[in-house]
Design a protein around this nucleic acid. Structure first.
Length: 672
DNA sequence: CAACTCCTAAACAAGC
DNA sequence: AGCTTGTTTAGGAGTT
């Protein structure tokens, strides 16, 4: 009963419901997520209980006013600590830089100003009435904003400089040392970004600043995109838990930074769309600010239309309440979506979704350009990306999904392009069948969107089978116990941190059902391995980049995963050779079967040269291999039981660095 | 329309 | 008894 309704929720409410569902789930789970994130095995080993234990947390309710006040103070507190820390770190010998003198001039002012307040918060509260305090805060924050922005810019320059230097120097350094330094830099960048956003939004909330996109993003634009995913944990944790210690977030950042360290090295890439993230709530009744790339004139006072109102229903994510007219909607908006933890969290979720899409789009656009250049395609062709795409129209003109550009990102991407509202709305089961055809780039796709799936409550666009396979193949010895598979799921996908009964059952079901999963008695007990040949066999012989395929793929998604799928589609259906060879692992000793070309970074199936819509096919060698694999008789059944040979020499020596990184990152957490 | 794939749910058994 | 693990069956939904 419970399960059923939950799954229905997921399906019928692509993003919004996810937002809401996750809101409660995540608000509950925030404790769970927090602990789970930091203590993976311990938190989850009692499978199926994490949700309950996490959910037991009382989410302390605060009135909006209290919340506001609390957050203001919190922001100030963070700012003070941060600046003090930055000041001290700047003064530390290791950080001497020509910029330091300039920064050092600024910092003491800020610190002095803030420490004044920091030192006497209670006193000031006693002396001043709340309105006075508020006014004081506003004044100080306005000042701080100016100073901070200056300071941020300088810090960013400095840090970037340092980072680049370190990156270059790091080529001769041990990887670990470099990683640590990068982590430190990343952390600093992240802190700055968060802090800045907090202040911007705080001020904005108080009406001190009207958040212009340029203003909001201006100072941030130099920030690397790599920091973006690290905000997700915060996002999903929800801040409704005042008891949540600050160091928790720090720890989480550390974790995520570690896992994104690889992407973090790509700073040299052009500036990405800046993510206006906030860990603080947004103004009540002004959700439009969040999706600020829109016509900002759409306020409640201009009731001719409302971006959150359409087709007679509330477009607030997950709401869909029917409202007869705008007035009723406004009333509904003010009552149901007032400033509270839930709404703010939903806003942040929405922000995150948009942000992720933008980032992804930027990345993919870039990649597309490079691909086209490489293939000598006419450079003028990429019209999908050079001009805004209207979301509702122009579905899959060429078989690919064109997510909204950042400039045109409308508020209503709740339904992926090309999807009739019914297909998502109707709440049919999440069909990921065709997604399975993308399981070949699952590794690269996962690697690239690791953080996204890890933190965003969106269903991964892969079948259970492909996910299980991926989980198993990611381990050095290519075997996992059931529980370890569970752990991988929960670790890798926020989505699987709930509905445990459902998906765990599905996992077991898949393991049992598919011949490609082989159970092996091991020292540890029973472990599961992948029979690549069977896996190849079971997959459909062909796939196309047809619109249908892409549509199918999307139909199973919360739209938040759209970018991932889109990317997967790009990666596989179009340019197989360009997909990430990260999973290249030609010599796993434990794998008794020839690894499929998937593991060589090529698509799993011979993509037909669908000349009509697909870009040109690339070189065919892997296809011959594929054919070979497919033609090979499957009677090596006895081979499929690896048994003791699984313990053979550690195969982990073969993988490429990225692969190693990923595995270490993933495996290290949990393999204890 | 049938066959297929995938997902979900559920029953059941064995082992701990 | 309760839980985990594993197997199996059934049915719905979508695709080919």
């Amino acid at each position: 009963m419970m399960v059923e309704s939950a799954s229905e929720t997921i399906r019928s409410a692509p993003s919004g419901q996810n937002g809401v569902g996750s809101l409660s789930a995540q608000a509950d789970g925030s404790g769970g997520a927090g602990t789970a994130g930091t203590a993976p095995a311990a938190g989850r080993d009692a499978s199926g209980r994490e949700a309950a234990s996490g959910g037991a947390d009382s989410n302390g309710e605060m009135s909006p006013a209290e919340l506001l006040h609390f957050q203001q103070q919190q922001a100030l507190q963070v700012a003070r600590q941060f600046l003090l820390q930055q000041a001290s770190s700047l003064n530390s010998p290791g950080n001497n830089d020509s910029k330091q003198s300039a920064s050092a001039v600024q910092v003491p002012v800020s610190v002095a100003m803030m420490s004044q307040q920091m030192l006497t918060p209670q006193q000031m509260q006693q002396i001043l009435s709340p309105p006075q305090l508020q006014a004081l805060l506003q004044q100080q924050q306005a000042l701080m904003l100016q100073q901070l922005q200056e300071y941020y810019k300088k810090q960013q320059e400095q840090l970037h400089l340092q980072l680049l230097t370190q990156q270059q120097a790091g080529k001769q350094q041990p990887k670990e040392a470099l990683g640590n330094k990068q982590l430190a830099f990343q952390q600093q960048l992240l802190q700055m970004q968060q802090l800045q956003q907090q202040h911007l939004l705080n001020l904005q909330r108080q009406g001190l600043v009207s958040l212009q996109p340029s203003q909001a993003s201006g100072p941030l634009q130099a920030l690397p995109q790599a920091v973006c995913p690290t905000d997700l944990p915060q996002l999903w944790k929800g801040e409704g838990a005042p008891g949540q210690p600050a160091e928790d977030s720090g720890r989480q950042e550390g974790l995520d930074l570690a896992s994104t360290a690889v992407t973090a090295t790509s700073f040299a890439s052009p500036p990405k769309v800046s993510p206006p993230l906030s860990h603080h709530p947004l103004p009540n009744g002004q959700p439009t600010v969040l999706t600020s790339r829109r016509d900002s004139s759409s306020h409640e006072e201009t009731p001719s239309s409302h971006p959150l109102y359409g087709h007679g229903e509330c477009k607030w994510p997950g709401c869909e309440t029917l409202c007869e007219d705008l007035g009723q909607f406004i009333k509904h908006l003010n009552t149901e979506h007032a400033l509270d933890d839930r709404s703010t969290a939903q806003c942040r979720v929405q922000m995150q979704v948009v942000q992720q899409l933008e980032i992804q789009l930027a990345k993919e656009s870039e990649r597309l350009q490079a691909m086209m250049a490489h293939l000598h395609m006419r450079p003028s062709e990429p019209k999908p990306f050079s001009q805004p795409v209207t979301v509702s129209a122009d579905p899959f003109p060429d078989g690919l999904v064109h997510p909204p550009t950042s400039a045109a990102a409308p508020v209503t991407p709740l339904r992926p392009p090309g999807l009739g509202s019914a297909s998502l709305h109707g709440g049919g089961p999440a069909r990921r069948r065709s997604n399975d055809k993308f399981c070949s780039p699952i590794s690269s796709e996962l690697a690239q969107n690791h953080e996204f799936y890890k933190n965003a409550d969106v269903r991964p666009p892969f079948t259970y089978a492909s996910l299980i396979r991926q989980a198993i193949l990611e381990t050095p010895d290519r075997q996992l116990t059931l529980n370890e598979i569970y752990n991988w799921f929960t670790r890798m996908f926020a989505y699987f941190r709930r509905n445990t009964a459902t998906w765990k059952n599905a996992v077991r079901h898949n393991l049992s059902l598919h011949k490609c999963f082989v159970r092996v008695e091991n020292v540890k007990g029973a472990v599961w391995t992948v029979d690549e040949r069977e896996y190849q066999k079971r997959r459909p012989p062909k796939m196309t980049g047809s619109p249908t395929l892409v549509k199918n793929m999307i139909s199973g998604l919360s739209y938040g995963a759209l970018n991932a799928s889109y990317q997967a589609a790009l990666a596989e259906s179009s340019f197989p050779l360009l997909s990430n060879p990260g999973m290249l692992n030609p010599g796993s000793a434990s794998s008794l079967l020839p690894l499929s070309q998937e593991d060589l970074g090529a698509p799993g199936e011979p993509l037909p040269s669908n000349g009509s819509s697909s870009p040109p096919r690339l070189s065919p060698p892997q296809y011959s291999h594929q054919i070979q694999v497919k033609e090979e008789p499957a009677e090596a059944e006895d081979d499929r039981r690896p048994g003791p040979p699984l313990g053979a020499p550690n195969p982990s020596t073969v993988g490429p660095p990225e692969d190693r990184d990923l595995e270490e990152d993933l495996g290290g957490e949990d393999m204890s």
